[in-house]
């Protein structure tokens, strides 16, 4: 199947309550609920994004942030092309947890994984515990996309996914240039038993 039509798997990782599900719901369905339930499992949602270079179909895995499900996240990032590491800008602990997620991805994640960092709950900026400069320079140091977002106000959500989409497209065109499609040819002739026998005689 052609690369263009494949879904791009994106996984959201981050501490419980940072707003992973809220970000996904805002992006996919443009809705927001302040009484959203914690995720127990890994929700799958999809969305087509329109770029000037074509379209990209996201298959998004929204994982459970609670610590006891931590080790299960690997099932989802193992096959992802991009990971969004979410932290809550009003919660320093969630920022440290985000850094640990990055460490885990480096150690156990797939190669060439595109990483994006989302500092969520931007609308609560007056309660900010993590300065943007700090997060930004961390993102820069690991070559990650950085976006401040608010699932509540929509701030930065579209752009976050757009930037990821663009990076995926760029990576793909490199990959497809590297591996030219291989195709097998079967032939009515070469499958005839007679031909096979002849070959045997010669050997």
């Amino acid at each position: 199947m052609d690369d263009n039509s494949a879904q791009a798997k994106v996984v959201l990782l981050g501490e419980a309550g940072v707003g992973k599900s809220s970000i996904v719901l805002r992006f996919v369905a443009d809705t927001y609920h302040s009484d959203i339930e914690p995720t127990i499992g890994a929700s799958f949602l999809s969305k087509i994004v329109n770029l000037s270079e074509g379209t990209i179909k996201f298959g998004i895995w929204d994982t459970a942030g609670q610590e006891r499900y931590h080790s299960l996240a690997r099932m989802y990032y193992a096959e992802a092309v991009a990971a969004i590491l979410v932290y809550d800008i009003t919660n320093r602990k969630s920022y440290e947890a985000m850094k640990n997620w990055h460490k885990e991805l480096v150690e156990q994640g797939p190669k060439n994984l595109i990483v994006a960092i989302a500092g969520n709950k931007e609308d609560l900026v007056e309660k900010e515990q993590v300065e943007m400069e700090e997060a930004k320079s961390f993102a820069e140091s690991i070559g990650a996309i950085y976006k401040k977002t608010s699932a509540k106000t929509r701030y930065g959500i579209e752009q976050l996914f757009k930037e990821i989409a663009i990076k995926i497209k760029d990576n793909r065109s490199i990959v497809t240039r590297e591996k030219r499609g291989s195709i097998r040819v079967t032939s009515a002739v070469s499958q005839q038993p007679g031909v096979a026998k002849e070959k045997k005689c010669c050997s």
Partner: peptide
Amino acid sequence: CIFVLGVKGGSDFFIE
């Protein structure tokens, strides 16, 4: 114990 119940083409559930 937590096990994962997956739905083909859909979400996964964690059952504890």
